[in-house]
Computed example of a mutant assay.
Amino acid sequence: MEGMTRSEVDKAENKDFALGGKPMRPRDAATLILLDRSGSEVKVLIGRRHRSHAFMPGRFVFPGGRTDPHDSRVPTATPLLPEEEMRIVGKGTRASAARARAIALSAIRETYEEAGLLIGRAMAFRTTRPGWQGFVEHGVTPELDRLRFIARAITPPGRVRRYDTRFLAAWRDDVAVELPEGGPTNELEELCWLSIEDAKKAEIPAITRTVLDELKTRLDGDPDLKPGHPVPFYRMLRNRFTRDLV
Results as ranks from 00 to 15, higher is better:
E2K: 11
E2S: 13
G3D: 02
M4N: 01
M4W: 12
T5H: 06
V9F: 13
D10T: 00
E13R: 08
K22M: 12
M24A: 14
R25A: 15
P26N: 14
R27H: 09
A29D: 07
T31P: 00
L35S: 07
R37Y: 06
L45K: 02
G47L: 09
M56H: 05
M56W: 00
G58T: 04
G58W: 02
P63V: 03
P63N: 01
P63F: 03
R66L: 09
T67S: 10
P69I: 12
H70L: 15
T76C: 15
A77I: 05
T78G: 02
L81K: 11
R87P: 00
V89D: 00
G92R: 11
G92Y: 13
T93H: 06
R94W: 00
A100H: 08
R101G: 01
A102P: 04
A102S: 15
I103V: 13
A104P: 01
A104D: 05
L105V: 09
L105M: 12
A107P: 00
T111L: 08
T111Q: 05
Y112P: 02
I119K: 01
A122T: 05
A124G: 07
R129M: 15
G131E: 14
G131C: 06
G134T: 03
V136W: 12
V136R: 13
H138F: 14
T141P: 00
E143Y: 00
L144H: 04
I150F: 03
I150W: 00
P157F: 06
P157N: 05
G158I: 05
R159A: 07
A169M: 08
A169S: 14
R172P: 00
V175K: 08
A176F: 10
V177H: 06
L179A: 09
G183F: 15
P184S: 11
L188K: 10
L188P: 05
E189P: 01
L191E: 08
W193F: 12
W193E: 07
I196H: 11
E197C: 06
E197S: 14
K200G: 02
P205F: 00
T208S: 07
E214I: 03
T217I: 04
R218G: 01
L219D: 10
D220V: 01
G221N: 11
D224E: 15
D224M: 15
L225G: 05
P230Y: 04
P232W: 14
F233E: 08
M236V: 03
M236Y: 09
